[in-house]
Amino acid sequence: MKKIAQLSFPKFVDLYADKSVGTDFFITEEKQLLELSEYPYRSEGYIIGICTRGTAKVEVNLQIYDARTDAMLLATPFHVLRIYDASPDFLCRFVVFTKAFLTEHNTNSHFIESFSYFNTSSTPVIYLNDKSAEPLLELYDLIRKTLQREDHPYRTEISRNLLTILLYEVAADYEQQHVIIKNKLTRKQELNNLFQDLVFSRYKEHRNVQYYAEALFVSPKHLTETIKEVTGKTAGEWIDDAVVLEAKVLLRNHDFSVAQIAEEINFPDQSSFGKYFKKQTGLSPSEYRVKANG
Rank of each mutant, 00 (worst) to 15 (best):
I181H: 14
K279P: 00
V125E: 13
T156I: 14
R42G: 02
P135Y: 00
D241L: 13
Y84F: 15
V249Y: 02
K248F: 03
D269Q: 06
N108M: 05
V230R: 00
V199D: 06
Q176M: 09
I83D: 03
E113L: 09
F267P: 00
N106H: 13
L162P: 09
D241W: 04
K188D: 14
N119P: 00
E229F: 09
Y211S: 07
E229P: 03
Q210C: 02
E287C: 02
Y168D: 03
E225N: 11
E134L: 15
S201Y: 14
S159Q: 04
E246G: 01
F277N: 00
R207H: 11
H79V: 05
V179N: 06
M1N: 11
E205W: 06
L251C: 07
P77Q: 12
D173L: 04
E229G: 02
A5T: 14
L81A: 02
A247T: 02
E38R: 14
L137P: 10
P268I: 07
K233H: 08
E104V: 03
H105T: 15
I239K: 05
G236Y: 04
L162A: 08
L216K: 00
R144S: 13
Y46V: 15
N253E: 07
V125H: 09
N119F: 07
D173A: 13
H110R: 12
D240H: 09
Y84P: 04
L191F: 03
C51D: 12
T123L: 08
H152M: 09
G236H: 05
L62N: 14
L73T: 12
A215T: 04
K291P: 01
